[in-house]
Amino acid sequence: MLRKLIHYDSKVQIRFLCGVYAVEALLAVLSGIFLGLKNQFPDVVIFVLMSGFARAICVLSVVVVFVGTIIYVVAYFRRNLLRDEGYLMHTLPVSPLQLYGSKLLTGTVFVYLSVFVGYLCFGIGNLRFRYSVLEEILKDTADRKTFLLMVITFLVVVPLLLCQFYSSLVLGYTWKMHSANPVNRDLLSVLAYIITYMVQQALAFVGLFGYFVIRFGNPLESGFLERVASLAGKGVSVQKEMVSYVQGILWVSLTLSVICGAVLFALSVYQLNRNLNLE
């Protein structure tokens, strides 16, 4: 059943996204063409102007598509599960876990896709694919580890971000009313997002502070300032210290985020099971 949901969700979302990608690709190609023309004929004023303009539009479109994909995917979740279409989806012989899960999986994949398409369009529009920086990073082992960590963080951040948005919508829409007055559930969802965001920030602060203490010991004990100051010193070994410290922070953040995401996911599925109340 999950596979069927994924198939259905993909089909619907891809229809919209393909149109968007097509426009983005067109703008990229135009930018590339004008850039090529400018490079060939640097004295022709119109080519210089158009190239600058087209390139700007191309870069803008990449950003807009990326942000727009996230917005679309979240809006699709809301429309399909919490509005009129919910009457169809929640009476299917599937569990809310599968309904939510399918949206999370397809949403994540489509955001990655938008990043990839954006990368391609950016390259086409600028007639150059930047991977020299990538090569440099991969040469050094320590840097490679950090890079890997950053990649993992990026991969994980997308579903976590979507999970936050999806869960805020669910929490807002399944909030138990205490009076019969109609309430704007989208506003409740925004409120839910703000609250869960603040809670996560607080947890992150506590978590990172805890990590900081583990690393450098009790702030109240002697020798603390010296240990922190040791980070700022010069030399290869200190650099390694710094790198491992940064890696540590990334690991802590990552773990905390994943835990928060999992909690939000579980809470949302529970709410969909128990307190669903479609208008």
């Binding site: 619907v12 429309r79 009129d84 279409e85 919910g86 009457y87 169809l88 009476t91």
Partner: peptide
Amino acid sequence: SYLPERPYFS
């Protein structure tokens, strides 16, 4: 098999 009062297809 449920028929709600609402339209439920996009």
